[in-house]
């Protein structure tokens, strides 16, 4: 069984991270930014799993990736609740238009 070198995973993860970064910068929508953040978290997880492949006894990388997934789930729920509140108050989802704490 031929195994893929770890650099290939790292390059793919770097590309995915940069795409996620560009998404969260360019999108003019709160949820678009969240999509970019999710892609960035996935890219980091690919790195962790690729390095954790060389640690079959303790699997530290995979455990760390598991905790990253848990934190990502918690983050998305709270972020969506906040976005819904902001939308209910300001009637907009453009981050540039939400520039006041109180309206």
């Amino acid at each position: 069984m031929t195994t893929i070198p770890v650099q290939y995973y790292l390059v793919v993860a770097a590309a995915l991270f940069c795409i996620g970064l560009a998404i969260s910068i360019t999108k003019r929508h709160f949820i678009g930014m969240l999509l970019g953040i999710e892609l960035m978290l996935n890219a980091v997880n690919i790195n962790l799993v690729a390095f954790g492949r060389h640690d079959p006894e303790r699997l530290s990388g995979q455990l760390f990736a598991l905790f990253v997934i848990v934190v990502a789930a918690a983050e998305v729920t709270v972020a969506l609740a906040i976005i819904l509140r902001v939308y209910g108050r300001f009637k907009t989802v453009d981050p540039d238009k939400v520039n006041e704490l109180k309206q």
Binding site: I4, Y9, Q62
Partner: peptide, 24 residues
Amino acid sequence: VLAGADFLAVSQIMIYVGGILVLL
């Protein structure tokens, strides 16, 4: 899966696709 993380792959599908994506 290709990196040998089978449990993590199934968790990824269940949590991200089944939970986070539906929420988004």
